[in-house]
Design a protein around this nucleic acid. Sequence first.
RNA 1: UGGCCUAUGGUGUAACUGGCAACACAUUGGUUUUUGGUACCAAAGAGUCUAGGUUCGAUCCCUAGUGGGCCAACCA
Length: 669
Amino acid sequence: MSEETKALNFIEHIIEEDLANGLAKDKLRFRFPPEPNGYLHIGHTKAIGISFGLGETYNAPVNLRFDDTNPSKEEQEYVDAIKRDIAWLGYQWENELYSSDYFQKLYDWALQMIKDGKAYVDSQTSEAIAEQKGTPTQVGKNSPYRDRSVEENLDLFQRMKAGEFPAGTHILRAKIDMEHPNMLMRDPMMYRIMYAEHHRTGNDWCIYPMYDWTHGESDYIEQISHSLCSLEFKPHRELYNWFKEHVYQYAEGDYPMLPKQREFARLNLSYTIMSKRKLLKLVEEGVVSGWDDPRMPTISGLRRRGYTPNSIRQFIKKVGVAKRENVIDVSLLEFCIREDLNKTANRVMAVLDPVKVVITNYPEGKEEWLDAENNQEDDSAGFRKVPFSREIYIEKEDFKEEAGSKFFRLKLGGEVRLKNAYIIQANDVVKDVDGNITEIHCTYDEDTTKKVKGTLHWVSIKHAIKAEIREYDRLFMHESPDSDKDKDFMEHLNPKSLTLKTGYLEPSLAEAKVGEQFQFQRLGYFNVDDDSTTEHLVFNKTVGLRDSWAKQKPKTQNNPGQNKTKAPQQKRSAISVIQQLGKKYTNVPEAKQEKSKAEIIKLAEEVAYEELEPLFGTAVKKVGTRIATLIALKVLLNKGLERNEAIDEFIAKAKADKNELLVAEASEL
RNA sequence: UGGCCUAUGGUGUAACUGGCAACACAUUGGUUUUUGGUACCAAAGAGUCUAGGUUCGAUCCCUAGUGGGCCAACCA
């Protein structure tokens, strides 16, 4: 690494510090621990990016560990989907592991804990236990079973494991402190009885360990150095540490290193939801077509929509890591995918809302195959041929009978360039009985060197191939649909999140393969959907191109909520600028002081005495502000302001100050 | 009747042990352009939540307040 210290996030600072304090670099080890009970979404990508990213920068192993301690919710389908998504993002895990691999070890350690008087079997109902637990503001009460003998606890726990008791009759709890201010420390549960088939251990177990007991010890067994998770687990850290310190006494020889849990703020994206439960509801109620619907914020949805692994990794990098709640603007995600596809996607022409153009001076039956550059951002992309003929389609939006000079597309009497082809002039329109334009009659000019302002995309009608085009808009119309306390998130659904169109494409697209990505020139980036076949092509719109023309038009047809109304940026008042200059006055070099002073003198012309007087009371410590006030005051006095008691007092106080600059300014009066 | 976390332009993140608050997105201009795209240039936008304190000097350290978040599943 070079001299210039690049900006590290707080987690990297912690790691650097640990390294500086003697942690060997080859001891660094991370993990990503999903529960296999749903699909990964863009929010998970942040956690993946942090741990796997750290693995890449420090060349350290990263384990993929499935936290599979609740057989009632977890399925193999999710395990497979999660692996597929992480691999697709381009990350490689060192080991594929499961918390369930450690069930035996965890059980043995639990036995030890019981023997040491650190855990006991409670035989109350869950209601009774919940009641004794207290509330955040009220301490809990001890369970009547808390002081069972070691022998009894051991016997009961072993019989729990043996399947002698029905579910819900006994649990194992750690013995900590029922009056602890952290509720997680009030004798937390370690095991519950569950007669459910586990996706890996089958029916071997009927007791399953809880998250806190399992997760930390799994980290410990894997000798994870830094266990990174989201903020909501912060309160768990105390318990995490309590468990690991006790287990350390049993296993120090095998597992010398104690992992360290640190927490970061999870990612929130504007106009989307992140909760697995709510995403599942969208799937189950048929609002979307599945977990991989292109409108879903799932990784599989983004993939189908046309987002690339690179774009998502860039996004995560730009989002950063910190500890405060955040909402990322979707425009950042869109920026990342445009940036990536701009470099890689071949340009093609497609008309999605066609109007017919007849080139009257072009011979009927004639056709030409013209050269078109595939991607001007990529020299190796080469050229292809596109057919031209007498009748073509252009976008309806690209023609107006009459328009001002700022509209530089096609208008009657106006000229426009057809991309990769000729320059045409519009002469006439044909309309149906309702007044809709059905044909535009143009003449073309073979001289293509002429300068014309606008360039349109087009497609030869005779050669065009049809395709289904799926255009997407955000799924929700509310900026944060699941934090609205008055309305259910389902009420914020955007009814127009999917628009189906028939597009007319240039014939080169006939062989487009599923997943292939293109820029439909002047429109946006599109990819071939999984549903596509050679008989019936289907394209998804990944994202539109930036469109500075659309911004100039009335907002009515824009996306809902796209344009936030912003308070007009007001010019700051002279007095507030003076205050600001004053605040820094004593810290800046002399040259800048002179500049500030000149500016204050100028600004003071616009200041009324009534605005200045309150600043006389500025704390003695804030010398700079007092100097600025004094300079401004002098200007007012020179303009003929009468001296009064307050002014005299302020000046006297300034003269008596220990700061030389202040005294110097004051002594001029 | 508590505990913990957090507060920097519209958004997100920086600022090394305290030293003229920076970068990206978004916004607004401009240049180039056979995409109103891209690229490039520029502008505007932040008294670093408030009040005190420590210091020659505070975004940074201390105290109090205020706002926001999290914590009471046999979920993770």
